[in-house]
Computed example of a mutant assay.
Amino acid sequence: MDEEGTSRDHVGSLERGLAVMEILARHPAGMTLTEMAEEAGLTRAGARRFLLTLAATGYATQSGRLFSLSPRLLTVARTWLGGASLWTFAAPVMREVAALLNEACSAAVLSGEDVVYVARVPGRRILSVSLDVGTRLPAHCTSMGRILLSGLAPDELEAFLGQAKIERRTPKTITDRRSLAAAIAKARADGFAIVDEELELGLRSIAVPITDRTGGTVAAINVSTQSARFSIAEMEREILPALLGAKRRIEDFFFV
């Protein structure tokens, strides 16, 4: 849209009203009309109109000389959050990671013995298989799978290790169940998992968990790269910090 169109469609009073709401949010103990006028850069008459309108519509309350936000705003926020997917919020963060590293960034959840991709930002083509939302890959030989398995309760992990079909995908695939259990335990202790050419030769990936308010693992995000581009040490040094930063942003936005 051009500048003239933007200016014509811009509603200045709405912008100022939203600014008043943001200022009230920063002062949970309440504000007087004079305080609002000073902080918002409004006249007393203008501040009064905005505050009384917010009170009349239920978005603010008035107690004597003090105005405060009301719980109605929380209801609006919960309605919005309830109708939106975690991956709606995560996608822009994942795009930043992919752009920073020039590599693919993906997210997955555990489904039986597989991981199922729930979000993906493509990078360089490094797999012979096509990956997209809905793709399933075996959990035992993928970095996101190792992280998701590390978040299982002990009895659930024991059941997986006892029943899962552990196939050798490459000469490097861990198929011994005790060794696999040790790799999963290491992922749990480290807070990340690196899988080196176990799914496909030439492919390395690193994953971290996405955890909810209770500390439970709800998903995983990873970065996949060619083994020629990053050594394992370089993945820990250069890719892991970006993934951990993305993890914190996603969790803070959606779960806090």
Results as ranks from 00 to 15, higher is better:
101 L>I: 02
117 Y>P: 04
236 E>I: 06
147 I>P: 07
213 R>Y: 12
2 D>L: 06
227 S>K: 13
31 M>D: 00
254 F>W: 15
193 A>F: 09
194 I>L: 10
155 D>I: 10
178 R>A: 11
90 A>N: 04
100 L>T: 13
110 L>A: 02
64 G>L: 00
92 P>N: 09
33 L>P: 01
128 S>K: 15
118 V>H: 05
194 I>T: 08
153 A>P: 03
226 Q>N: 15
206 I>D: 06
153 A>T: 05
132 D>G: 13
79 T>Y: 10
119 A>C: 11
230 F>W: 15
83 G>N: 03
110 L>Q: 05
174 I>V: 11
210 I>W: 04
169 R>N: 13
43 T>Q: 05
187 A>S: 14
96 E>S: 09
37 A>E: 00
234 E>S: 14
235 M>H: 11
215 G>K: 10
114 D>M: 03
62 Q>G: 08
255 F>H: 08
255 F>G: 06
222 N>T: 03
150 S>T: 02
1 M>F: 05
103 E>V: 02
185 A>Q: 15
211 T>E: 07
153 A>C: 00
24 L>N: 08
41 G>Q: 00
86 L>G: 04
48 R>K: 15
189 A>L: 15
162 G>K: 12
239 I>D: 07
40 A>P: 01
210 I>E: 01
215 G>H: 09
250 I>Y: 06
103 E>W: 11
149 L>E: 05
232 I>E: 14
180 L>S: 07
114 D>N: 11
117 Y>C: 02
184 I>A: 08
111 S>Q: 12
23 I>W: 03
192 F>M: 08
239 I>K: 09
77 A>I: 04
141 C>F: 08
72 R>S: 09
77 A>E: 10
156 E>K: 15
225 T>L: 11
143 S>M: 01
100 L>H: 14
189 A>N: 15
74 L>K: 14
135 T>C: 05
